[in-house]
């Protein structure tokens, strides 16, 4: 019981952490981002490096402040205009388990900063690194990939989906090439 309380207290502390110098944690980890599970010459059963949990996930996704900031930035930087409340619009949905360019924090960071060729703009020069990681954390919370105790418990607008802390966790899978031609289309 005591251990449990202690654990909760610790988790609570992390949840309330304010890191105003977040760039220190965001050394550029995107150089090694890969967009496929195929790694020639790698022995079987070894996880691709991009999906390994890194310090970034620990630092940002457990902190309610970062997730909440990510939620605000998602609206203010017009992410919402293309991805809606996660259901998708011009861009693909973010609330489901399908990821065209990877679901790991590093992969999402790379997608935000570098852009992606089928319409995702490169936000690298518009967002600070801290803002980008905050957005990464919020985007992952939309499909239940972040700790429930830190994810936002409410949305800012009425026409929306249940808040991220009520979103069931998903098991990310790689999506198809988003080609509009029939050979690759349906899923």
């Amino acid at each position: 019981m005591l251990a449990c309380l202690y654990g909760l207290t610790l988790a609570g502390c992390k949840r309330e952490e304010r890191d105003f110098h977040g760039d220190a944690a965001s050394a550029d980890t995107t150089a090694s981002v890969q967009l496929t599970e195929l790694v020639p010459g790698l022995p079987p059963s070894i996880e691709p490096s991009a999906s390994a949990a890194g310090p970034v996930r620990a630092d940002f996704e457990k902190v309610a402040f970062h997730l909440s900031e990510g939620q605000r930035l998602y609206e203010q930087f017009n992410c919402v205009g293309c991805h809606a409340n996660g259901g998708g619009d011009i861009g693909p949905p973010l609330m489901d388990d399908v990821w065209l360019y990877g679901a790991s924090p590093e992969q999402i960071y790379a997608s935000l900063a570098q852009g992606r060729p089928n319409g995702m703009p490169a936000y690298g020069r518009k967002l600070s690194r801290q803002q980008t990681w905050q957005l990464v954390a919020y985007v992952r919370s939309m499909s239940g990939l972040t700790p429930k105790d830190a994810a936002p418990a409410r949305n800012d607008f009425t026409q929306s989906v249940p808040p991220p802390n009520s979103t069931p966790a998903t098991n990310p899978v790689s999506g198809p090439n988003p080609s509009p031609t029939a050979e690759h289309g349906s899923r």
Binding site: A84, N85, G86, G87, G88, D89, M95, S160, V161
Partner: peptide, 9 residues
């Protein structure tokens, strides 16, 4: 492939 769960899609 939008998600019907999101009324704002």
């Amino acid at each position: 492939d939008l998600k019907p769960e999101d009324p704002g899609s």
